[in-house]
């Protein structure tokens, strides 16, 4: 049984996770032959890349094609699935062989799991980020030239490169404010604390919906997904929409006036109190600790 793995690069973390998933799938459902890894060579054009996967399936008849559940991985595999009229299991966390096999995949940005039967001639699967760990050895993926597709569009330019400063994705500390901040002006203290910790400012969906902060600051299922060393959630209740964006944080400190808020069930550390009273004290204490 042959398994193909679509990689975005030999060192790409999510692609290496997809490789691990593919090895486990091959082991569980057959002879455990090493999956064949490939990258697609050519300027990115989603429909053309999808056609490349479809052509490769036509030429090599694999049992499964596995790809990372990245934005591009999901996009390319959706095109391949549409071209082939095959089902696609996106953001998959587990595979159980059978006829048909059963997949487990994430819903609600990871707040819920779904088990589903995958009825397909060729199993098309993307792997949810961080569902499995990347394992050695890596591979040297084969570079397959991109196919053409009549509907293919390629980007004509790239605009709006990040404007410096610490980005939400890269920050080792994220200080986020929720509805409890109360106003756009209320974010001054959030910004001050983030600045002191060389971190980035985040916010919940309630805040962007109210127009207090730009959507680029939103952490959540429909915003940015962050993975800092420390996430400080201030005046955030802990809705599933928000937690889907910050569950990658190593540690979570919650500051909330409501001691019963569900954020505390996800937190490592908690302070019960109004953030407008608590944060200035923390900022002052940091300055004191630094002798400033």
């Amino acid at each position: 049984m042959s398994v193909l793995v679509l990689m975005e690069g030999a060192d790409d973390e999510l692609s290496l996770q997809a490789l691990t998933f593919a090895r486990e799938l091959a082991q569980a459902s057959g002879d455990g032959a090493e999956p064949s890894a490939f990258t697609i060579d050519g300027p990115y054009a989603p429909a053309a890349f999808g056609q490349t996967v479809a052509d490769l399936i036509g030429a090599r008849a694999p049992r499964a094609v596995i790809a990372p559940g990245s934005e591009r991985g999901n996009e390319v595999m959706a095109h391949a699935a549409a071209i082939l009229d095959e089902p696609l299991s996106a953001n998959t966390t587990a595979f159980e062989p059978g006829d048909p096999p059963t997949v487990t995949r994430v819903r609600w940005g990871g707040s819920l799991l779904e088990q589903a039967l995958l009825r397909a001639r060729t199993l098309l699967i993307t792997v949810a980020p961080h569902a499995v760990a990347a394992q050695a050895p890596g591979v040297m993926p084969e570079a397959v030239p991109a196919s053409g597709h009549a509907l293919a569009l390629a980007p004509t330019e790239r605009v709006g490169a990040s404007s410096g400063g610490v980005t939400l994705e890269e920050a080792s500390v994220v200080v986020s404010g929720g509805r409890g901040v109360g106003s756009a002006e209320g974010f001054a203290i959030i910004e001050e604390l983030a600045g002191l910790l060389h971190g980035a400012v985040g916010c919940s969906r309630a805040v962007t919906s109210a127009g207090w902060r730009p959507h680029t600051d939103q952490v959540g299922q429909t915003g940015t997904k962050v993975a800092p060393e420390l996430y400080i959630a201030c005046g955030i209740s802990g809705a599933t929409q928000h937690m889907a964006g910050c569950k990658g944080a190593k540690k979570l400190l919650a500051i909330n006036a409501d001691g019963e808020a569900s954020i505390f069930a996800h937190a490592d550390y908690g302070v019960v109190g109004d953030l407008h009273a608590v944060l200035p004290g923390i900022a002052a204490e940091i300055r004191k600790a630094r002798g400033a």
Binding site: V271, V272, G281
Partner: peptide
């Protein structure tokens, strides 16, 4: 997870730091 409550209100600042 078991949350560790560091304190109530502004008095929690030293424990947070």
């Amino acid at each position: 997870k078991q949350v560790r409550i560091l304190g109530q209100g502004p008095d929690a600042a030293p424990a947070v730091v």
